[in-house]
Every structure is written in structure tokens, then in C-alpha cells.
């Protein structure tokens, strides 16, 4: 059997930054985020510019919190949901940091974290920053309907998070070590309904989780938290059922970021949250701070991505999905 798990010997998470919009600031995690912007336009005149501005500010927060200047960063990676990752490209224009654009839909933040870890572990760079953003309005405009269009959402639909998360990894030790990673495989289970992305991504998440535990010496109960990215309520429940059939019962430590960020009932969020910023902000804001407070020590993050576009959906194609995993622990 092939080795799925990548082992890193000297990669550390130095700092995280998170910035969210109004809806997220009304959710249960509001107090954890570094900054909140209530203006959906972020002071610009279009939602696309707003997303870039949001990403730019988040990167500045990250640099500020970690006491670095742009020229101190060896490598910057990031992506978003807009065509050709345009939001991130504009956001990083003035930083002059060597940049790799990534696309992994909502798994981008962990995809970037894995690539960053590989660069650092291989000794090619001393540090690397990773960022991922999404904006409800720009995503809605690109993937769905005009914002003022009157439509009803199905109970399995998810709400794109407005926010951006950015992480800084380095080779100098910090308490937070990136130990392992599993690069996801594309899983296509045939689900075509873009309003049920949880069902499309659940099998990808389960595939990656199983590949990890089949090879690892660790068991699910060795972890304080196993968090998936944005399966939402629907996908989360499907994944629990699938894991159970494969002999794994993860219990209370198994959570989904898409179910944490909003008060699903009160905010009428149907199946929960989705978007690049979902895991990026929930880990960067919420989970990482709990690790800093010693509430959590050993954490598995599985970021899920639904890799559809508008054309593929119109052509009635299924939704190829992916899930990347990293294992971070406090030492």
C-alpha cells in the first residue's frame, strides 16, 4: 500500500489572522475573530474589490500580529473562489512577496498549508504565509443568482462565509508543530446538486480520514478535535454515517467548521456555512485560539472543497470533490 501520510520534521505554525463580515460577527464565534467589517463593500464600490480589500487587510493583520514586514516573508500562497483567483491576486499586488496562486475551492487554506509545509520542510524557504478568502456577495454573483433575485433556498443549501484567514508557517520552533498531512484525492460520487455540496464532499472527507487512520499509529480518540471544513449539517451527518459503516465512531470531537460559525437556527442558514473562508477563519480565529489557551492539544483539520464551476453545473456534470488533511499539535 502506498504511503498517504506526509511527515514533516521542522514546520511550525507561528501566527494566524482572521477577518470576517457582518453575518459571521453575529454568530457564536464572533469574539474569536481578529477583526470584523460590517460594510459588505469594505469601503470599495464592488463586491469583488471588497473581497480583495478584505484579503489585503487580513494579510496586514497577520504581518502585524507576527511582527514581520512583507520583505521578511519568503513565500506567499493563497486563493479564493472568484474566476482565476482574481481577489487574491489584487490583494497581494503591493506586497512584493513571491506568490503562488492556488485553487482548491474551499480546501484552499489547507492545500496552501501543505504546500507551505513542504517548502519549509525541504529547506527551500524559512517561512511562508498562506491565505484564503471568500465573500458571500461575490460568490453569489459568480455561482448563483444576482443578489436581489427572489429565490428560495433548499434546506441542504449552504451560505458562503464572508471572511479571510491567513496563517504564517516557519522553520523556527513555536509550540504549534505541523506534524503530518494527507493530500486529498479527487472523489466524484456522482452528486450533481450544487445546493447539496455537503453530500458531494462527504465522501472525499471520509476517504481522506480513512487513509489517515489506516496508516497512522494514532487513533481518533488520541485527538482533541477532528474538524472538517464545510460539509455543513447535511454532509457532516452523511460522513458520520459513512465512517460508522467503516468502523470509526468519532463522537463529540468530530465537528464541522460550517456548523460552528453561524447559529444555524437563529440566522436561518439552512445546512450551515461554506466557502474558502469557512475553515480559514474558524481555525485561524476559533480553533487556534483554543490551542493557545491549552484547551486543545492535538488537532486534525480536514478541509473539503467542491470543485465545480458554473459551466460544469449547466452541463449537468457531477461535482468533483477533494479533502486535504493536516495534523497540528501543541508541544
Amino acid at each position: 500500500m502506498k504511503n498517504s501520510i506526509l511527515h514533516f520534521s521542522s514546520v511550525y505554525l507561528a501566527q494566524t489572522a482572521s477577518l470576517v463580515g457582518k453575518k459571521e460577527s453575529e454568530g457564536p464565534l464572533a469574539s474569536y475573530f481578529d477583526a470584523i467589517e460590517e460594510d459588505p463593500y469594505f469601503g470599495t464600490d464592488t463586491f469583488e474589490k471588497a473581497e480583495s480589500e478584505m484579503a489585503r487587510r487580513t494579510l496586514n493583520i497577520l504581518l502585524g500580529k507576527s511582527g514581520k514586514r512583507p520583505e521578511d516573508i519568503d513565500l506567499l500562497m493563497g486563493g479564493d473562489l472568484l474566476n482565476q483567483c482574481i481577489a487574491t491576486s489584487f490583494a497581494v499586488t503591493k506586497t512584493h512577496i513571491p506568490f503562488l496562486g492556488l485553487y482548491g475551492a474551499c480546501s484552499t487554506i489547507i492545500e496552501g498549508s501543505i504546500v507551505a509545509s513542504a517548502f519549509i520542510n525541504g529547506g527551500l524557504v524559512k517561512n511562508a504565509a498562506v491565505m484564503a478568502s471568500s465573500h458571500f456577495c461575490s460568490a453569489e454573483r459568480q455561482y448563483r443568482f444576482p443578489l436581489e433575485y427572489g429565490s428560495q433556498r433548499t434546506p441542504t443549501a449552504q451560505h458562503t462565509v464572508t471572511g479571510c484567514g491567513a496563517y504564517l508557517f516557519q522553520n523556527e520552533p513555536t509550540p504549534f508543530r505541523v506534524k503530518e498531512a494527507v493530500i486529498g484525492k479527487i472523489v466524484d460520487n456522482g452528486v450533481k446538486d450544487a445546493n447539496n455540496m455537503g453530500a458531494a464532499m462527504a465522501t472525499a472527507a471520509v476517504d481522506t480520514i480513512l487513509r489517515y487512520f489506516n496508516e497512522s499509529s494514532l487513533k481518533p480518540q488520541d485527538f482533541d478535535l477532528i474538524a472538517t471544513g464545510d460539509l455543513g449539517k447535511e454532509g457532516h451527518e452523511i460522513s458520520i454515517e459513512l465512517l460508522k459503516r467503516c468502523g470509526y465512531t468519532l463522537g463529540d470531537i468530530y465537528v464541522d467548521c460550517g456548523m460552528l460559525i453561524y447559529d444555524i437556527e437563529k440566522q436561518d442558514m439552512h445546512a450551515g456555512a461554506s466557502g474558502c473562508a469557512c475553515m480559514a477563519t474558524v481555525f485561524g480565529g476559533h480553533i487556534f485560539k483554543r490551542m493557545q489557551n491549552n484547551e486543545l492539544k492535538r488537532v486534525l483539520l480536514i478541509a473539503t472543497g467542491a470543485l465545480l464551476n458554473k459551466k460544469s453545473a449547466l452541463q449537468n456534470e457531477s461535482i468533483p470533490s477533494i479533502a486535504h488533511l493536516i495534523h497540528i499539535c501543541k508541544e
Binding site: 434546506p155 452528486v191 453530500a199 447535511e234
Partner: peptide, 14 residues
């Protein structure tokens, strides 16, 4: 096929 049927069945309709 079974998976699709399973997700269709469990997906709550409005």
C-alpha cells in the same frame, strides 16, 4: 448509485 439514492432520500425537502 446507492450513495446517490441515499443522499437523495435523506436530503430534507422544503
Amino acid at each position: 448509485k446507492e450513495y446517490l439514492a441515499y443522499t437523495e432520500k435523506r436530503a430534507k425537502r422544503s
